[in-house]
Structures are given as structure tokens and as C-alpha cells.
Design a protein around this nucleic acid. Structure first.
Lengths: 210, 210
DNA sequence: CGCATTTATCGTACGTCGTACCGGAAATAC
DNA sequence: GTATTTCCGGTACGACGTACGATAAATGCG
């Protein structure tokens, strides 16, 4: 039997509440007091379950990492790799704070290791060496994070930005930019699946050709 | 002649001091009070030159963007694009806070527009449509930022991480990861130039093939 | 010159944050 | 009972961004 006063909550409850808040209101709204309030505890009680806010973020990242669902590997690296990227994007769209929270957190838990494992497994048929496979998985993660960040940031065409671009184009110093803007949206943006295919296929193909 | 009390400093001085601090001590050490102290002013005086800290970050990003130096374009998109990526990496290595500061700041000033222009110019010979070129430049920026972040983060092999990986590998649930680790460093990490070449060449090649 | 006007300076202060500290509460072991 | 262990959470500290407003320093006008 455990000695001492029994805990009123669990680490999981704390992490879940934090994820719920971050999902709904963003990372900026995620404060220790807010989490405590959500689970009906005093602010300082959280420190029974989590050493500090930074570790809590680690735990959040690893926890949502467990939500990654992937179809069974087909053995075709192209298909499998794109599937991993797509699953990751889906995860990041469900948890928009994720791209901002990931950067420095290398391998924070088993779920992140599992993700890495999936990426490596998808690349296994290519026969690439270990460091290259690691690099490609890391690159893929970064790429997906960048894409989703751009995707979820509402494109903010602020007045001052419009003015800036307008006069820049008018100045004639940015001919390529002017051409692209003049062209309008006729080319249509490529979209995630196409971009992911280009990026990953291109990257692996080049690595193999080397 | 301007009326009123003349300013004791300039916006440039404020931005420069901020960059100096961020370069030397990181973004976390960049506080308004610290900047003010550095230039010998009261904290609140800064607000004469800058509306708030967030705009100051915009100004910092755009300012260092002016340091980008590129060799003359050769007309070969592969060479030119890699040159742009390399210059951007150099910039980020000189200002390690840059990758963290860029994310949401779309086109904060003329220097960032100039960077975009360079990227588009490098891609001009490919004949790709506007949106695709824009996407590729954005992807390139994100990729370089990811790479430099990984590069400048001191790889932190913390005890707990080592333990985590150790037991994970021992559990047998991560065969691919185990294989890569067992393989040792024989494959040698590819390095930026190689990676950039693979990524960009692969990406453009795939886009062209479409 | 004096005086109104304009602009910059910056001390004080407020609200918020992460979290150190520590007395009190709640459980078990003896 | 009492000692021991563990968790709870109020209070408080230092740091942050920055609103406010009194004060200072310049010009333009009489």
C-alpha cells in the first residue's frame, strides 16, 4: 500500500487538460493556473504531477504522438512515406500548437520513437544507410510542420503588408514577384498531397542516385 | 525643422541592440529592459521607436535579411537555388534565433521581399507557374530553418533520453531504429550541401515532371 | 526675451507569468 | 494514539510587456 496522502489527480489528467486548452485556445493561453482551474486544483498542485511547464510540453507532444494512425505498410517506400507524412499532417491539423511545440524536443517519449520507427520502416526498402534515413525523416517532419504552420496561419493580408508589397512591386525592383502576382491564381496552389509527393519522392530519388 | 524634443536614439539603434543581444544570448534573453539598458535608455523610451516587442522582432528579421549576400545568378536553377539556400543557412548560423523568429512573420519588410525575389529569380528558368514557385521558396525556407535548428541545437543526449532509447531498443519493438543505431556512424551524415541539393533538385524535378 | 506647443524621456505601477516555499491536510505504519 | 510520508494549495517573489502621466527639451511665434 502506498503511504501518504493519495493524489487527487493523475499526470494523465493534467496532460489531457493541457492538450484540451492548447487545442481550443492556442499555446499562448496555456498557463499553469489555467490548467489547474480546468481540473479543479490549485495551481501549485500541478507540480506534484509534472516537474515544470517545459516537461509538460514534452509530455503533451509525446501524448498526441500516440494518436498517429497509419495504414499497414505496403512495402512501397513512396506510398508508405507519403502515408506517414499525411498522418502527421492530420495530427498537426488536429493540434495546431504542435508545429510550434516540436522544434527542440528530440525524442521526448515512446510515441515519438514509434513515429521515427514508422518513418524508418517506410524507408527500409530503399536500402539507404542509417544516417541518411534519419535525416530524411527529420526533414519530413520539418517540412510537414512548416506546411501546416502556413496552412493554419490565416494568411494575414494586413494593410501595411499590402501597402508594402504594392509599392515594392510598383518600384520595379521586384520583377519576378510582380510577374507572379500579375499571373494571378491561374496555376492554383499545389496542395499538400502533391507537395509531399514531390518533396519526398524527389528527395529519396536524389539520395538513391548519389 | 522638427518641433519638440529631439530623439536621443534611433530605431536602427534599438533594432541593432536587440539583434546583438539575441545573437549573443538568445531570444529568451531579449527583453525590453535589457535592450534599453544596452543603449543607455529607460525601458519605456524604446516605445518611441517601436510600437511593441512583436514589431521589433519583425524589424529584426527584416534587418538581418538585408545581410543576405548572393553570388550573381548563373541562370542554372539548380546552382542558383542551392546558392540561395546556402546563403540563408549562413545567415541563420550567424543569427541562431532567426529560425525561431521567422515562422509566422510573412513578408515583414523589403529585405524579405528581396529574398523572395531571389528565390523566384532562381526558379525562373524552370518555367514553373507562380504558385508553385512560391510554394517551393517557402518550402526551402522552412527546410533551411529546420536544418539549422537541428544543427545549432547541441544534440542534447540527456541521461533520460539515453535511457529511453536504450530500453526502447532493448524491448525489440523498434527494429528499424535498433538497426540504424547498431549500424553506427559508418554511413556518415550527409551534410547541408548534399541535403540541400537532394531536396531542391528532387523537388523541382518532380514538379517539372508533373 | 517669454510662452505655447510639440515631442521624447522614463519612473511608477498594473496585470500576468512560472514557480519556490511551507504550513496544513490526509493517508499509512507502528 | 504518534510518527511518517505524501499531496494540497495559499502566499509571495522576481521577471515580463507595457499603460499612464509627470517632466524635460526642443521649436515657433509674439
Amino acid at each position: 500500500m502506498p503511504r501518504g496522502r493519495p493524489p487527487s489527480h493523475t499526470r494523465e489528467q493534467v496532460v489531457d487538460a493541457a492538450i484540451r486548452i492548447a487545442d481550443a485556445e492556442g499555446l499562448a493561453a496555456l498557463t499553469m493556473r489555467r490548467i489547474a482551474q480546468d481540473i479543479g486544483a490549485g495551481a501549485m498542485s500541478l507540480y506534484t504531477y509534472v516537474p515544470d511547464k517545459d516537461r509538460l510540453l514534452d509530455l503533451m507532444v509525446d501524448r498526441v504522438g500516440g494518436e498517429l494512425v497509419l495504414p499497414a505498410a505496403t512495402g512501397d517506400w513512396r506510398t508508405d512515406l507519403i502515408a506517414v507524412a499525411g498522418a502527421q499532417r492530420k495530427l498537426m491539423l488536429a493540434h495546431p500548437w504542435l508545429p510550434a511545440a516540436i522544434p527542440n524536443r528530440r525524442l521526448t517519449g515512446r510515441n515519438m520513437l514509434a513515429y521515427l520507427e514508422k518513418g524508418l520502416a517506410a524507408l527500409a526498402p530503399t536500402g539507404l544507410d542509417g544516417p541518411t534515413k534519419m535525416e530524411i525523416v527529420a526533414l519530413m517532419t520539418g517540412f510537414v510542420a512548416s506546411f501546416v504552420t502556413a496552412e493554419t496561419t490565416p494568411a494575414t493580408p494586413q494593410e501595411d503588408q499590402v501597402a508594402l508589397i504594392g509599392e515594392a512591386v510598383a518600384s520595379g525592383e521586384f520583377p519576378e514577384l510582380a510577374a507572379v502576382l500579375a499571373e494571378g491564381g491561374q496555376g492554383r496552389e499545389p496542395g499538400f498531397d502533391r507537395i509531399a509527393d514531390w518533396t519526398l519522392t524527389g528527395l529519396v530519388t536524389q539520395a538513391l542516385a548519389f
